[in-house]
Design a protein around this nucleic acid. Sequence first.
DNA 1: ACAATACTGAACAATATGTTCCGTATAATC
DNA 2: GATTATACGGAACATATTGTTCAGTATTGT
Lengths: 180, 180
Amino acid sequence: MDRRQRKTREAIYRAFTALLREEGYAKVTVQQIIDRADIGRTTFYTHFDTKDALLRSFCSEIFDHVFSVDPGKEKTHDFSNAHDIKAKVTHILYHLREHIDVLSGILSGESDAVFMGFFREKLAEMFSSSVPKDPAVPYDYRLNGVVCGFCETVRWWTKHSGYTPEEISDFFFAAMAITA
Amino acid sequence: MDRRQRKTREAIYRAFTALLREEGYAKVTVQQIIDRADIGRTTFYTHFDTKDALLRSFCSEIFDHVFSVDPGKEKTHDFSNAHDIKAKVTHILYHLREHIDVLSGILSGESDAVFMGFFREKLAEMFSSSVPKDPAVPYDYRLNGVVCGFCETVRWWTKHSGYTPEEISDFFFAAMAITA
DNA sequence: ACAATACTGAACAATATGTTCCGTATAATC
DNA sequence: GATTATACGGAACATATTGTTCAGTATTGT
């Protein structure tokens, strides 16, 4: 690849990640990226068709890195058939941590955030007394997990709307293992 | 409230929900709502400061309805101290079902969807052999729950970044009850 | 009937997107 | 070192959306 291309691409990535940290994905505009990267408007659009295309490309790079199997561990553990899935998860978490600040920018859902904000507030209140008190896990984490598990259940339901509320409720309690 | 206000407000809601179903929240523009509701531009902005304000107001109405305790059940069950939390969940699901098509429009996260799309694809592959085969719950649902549980764990981590990967991993496996 | 107020329409500035054209600068290649 | 290819830059452009302003009209509740 041309050295010029590499440099501008890196400048775009640098600007993009910085803006992600500062404002989150939804608020970042192409114009800001252009200004921050100090490149021509035309140049940006020859590299990426749109802001989403940039994000896609960016995610590809991150995940190629995060899901690359650690060569050192590859020899001692067998990840392929789920025996050491926990070690694999830990390994991925280590990689993710390297991008942890950028992740916040991407994960700050802006579109469904309002709805989810309302929903989760109500749900947290409702589930607060049902979450098992496990000293090994922060209560806050567990409650959040149950609340999100329910949100995700509803989301799943919107795509499999053939089930009845009772069935959905059964699935949820079977999966979350909380006091019913 | 003035009858005119009620009528325009309802026209806005009608247009908004229809557009939510058709395109999802992120793609809907204020202009579309105005055109669909067949009202003046000025009128919309006297009712709502912004598209987000409309969504907030809309969510308030939905949740006031969804979380209203069923008077019939209120007498026979004691929801307040989590004895019949499962019945309460089912009850909420019934209410949610009435808005199920609108929910899809709101829940179709557009901003973090790209990232999550990548992430979840990889995770589903990874967890596919770790999900317990429970005949009472669709495998698809369970896998989705585990994948989302992990995504949400990462999201939670970005807001509690003091923990180590090992700790986070422990929390996750303690909460999800899958084969480690 | 009348006063209050909600709606309308048009125009406006500001901002963002994505494209086009052309000149310049920097590569890779001979 | 000269040449050719191509990446970059800048300015201008059309288009779309947002949110505001203002004067005039229509509808309400009293």
